[in-house]
Amino acid sequence: MAPATLGRHIAALADAGPRWREDRENIAATLRHLRDELSGSGYEVVEERYGEAPHQINLFASLTGRDPAAPLVEVGAHWDTVQGSPGADDNASGVAGVLEIARALHGLGPRQRGIRFCLFGEEEEWMTGSGAHVEQFTAAGEAVEGLIALEMIGFRDSRTGTQRAPLRIPGVFSPPRTGDFIADLRSLPFANAVQRSARRYVPGLKTYLLKRTGGLLRDAARSDHLPYWRTARRGLLVTDTANLRNPHYHKATDTLSTLDLDFAADVTRAVAGALIDLADRQQG
């Protein structure tokens, strides 16, 4: 999970241009890159179309677990952008993390539980892609424990005062004021696994766990974990906190040159370790 490799993925997506629903050539190039990378890592790529438009597509790859009856653990990111933004942090950084986790875990062999790597469309359209995915596997009776969503993992600013918060309640909700951490939002078993992994594999990575109070904020429900929450499944948002830190959020200036690839690589390593931990747990 070298920073340069993450940078290569981010560049491939961001340099193609915005990945909004009308950017058909850019979307085609993006999906081609995603398929090629997953196939090159040894996976069979599964397409899930949830509409007739070219952008209405999710891509998946899976590692089969030793216990086929055990609920899957998913990790995912959305590949689309808002109109006019190349989306290096939002969310080519998260996609790059998923691709590199998939590559790294493939060589380790099967875990106790299966792991599914999810690349969602239309997160910027009210989580349409991930919502359709949850509806489909629910209707099929497929057991899925939950999702770790990588949503903007590449922007770090170590200057004091660079981290904003929607509110602060002294002694109850007082997040750091320096934008040099990754936030783990709400789903405690998944969040605890990420924090354990960070302490073990990337002890220099600062993490901040937003527990129940933070999870009640409107900003807590702005990504692909939300459809999982709505169906009483686990959903963990791993994020650099988006517009609460990154001044390039949803702008044409959201480019690779603004990102801290060492930070993105550390976050990716922490999530990879957490997935191994979660997938090795016995059912029940």
Rank of each mutant, 00 (worst) to 15 (best):
T207K: 04
D224Q: 01
P175R: 03
N192P: 04
G204E: 06
R196N: 11
D224T: 00
G214F: 10
R186D: 13
P175S: 03
H225C: 01
I169P: 06
R164L: 12
K211W: 12
G214A: 04
R164S: 15
D180C: 06
L209F: 13
L209D: 11
A191F: 07
P175G: 08
T178I: 08
S187G: 09
L210K: 10
R212P: 03
Q163V: 12
V172M: 02
D180L: 08
I182P: 09
I169M: 08
N192V: 13
L210C: 11
T178P: 06
G214V: 01
R196V: 06
D184T: 14
L205H: 02
G215V: 02
L188N: 06
R200N: 13
G204V: 07
T178Y: 10
L210E: 13
R212T: 12
R212N: 05
L210F: 12
R186M: 14
I182R: 08
N192L: 12
D184Y: 12
P227I: 01
Y201G: 00
Y228T: 00
R177A: 15
L205I: 04
P175F: 03
A165R: 05
A198V: 03
F173R: 04
R196P: 05
R196W: 12
P176A: 03
V202K: 02
D180S: 08
R164G: 14
G214W: 01
G171L: 00
A221E: 01
V172P: 02
D219S: 14
T160S: 13
G161A: 11
Y228N: 00
F190L: 15
A221L: 08
A183C: 13
L216Q: 09
R218A: 10
A193I: 14
R164T: 13
L167N: 05
P175I: 03
R222Y: 00
A198L: 10
L185R: 13
S174V: 11
D224R: 00
G204Y: 08
F173Q: 06
A165G: 06
K211Q: 15
N192E: 14
L209G: 09
L188C: 05
Y201D: 04
A221R: 13
S174I: 08
P175A: 04
D224E: 02
R177E: 15
G214T: 10
R186C: 15
S187Q: 14
P176R: 01
L210Y: 11
R186F: 15
H225T: 01
L167M: 11
P189V: 10
A198F: 04
G179S: 12
A165N: 06
D184I: 14
Q195M: 15
P166G: 09
H225P: 00
A183Y: 09
R177F: 09
R177V: 14
R186Y: 15
I169E: 10
Q163H: 12
L210W: 10
Q163C: 09
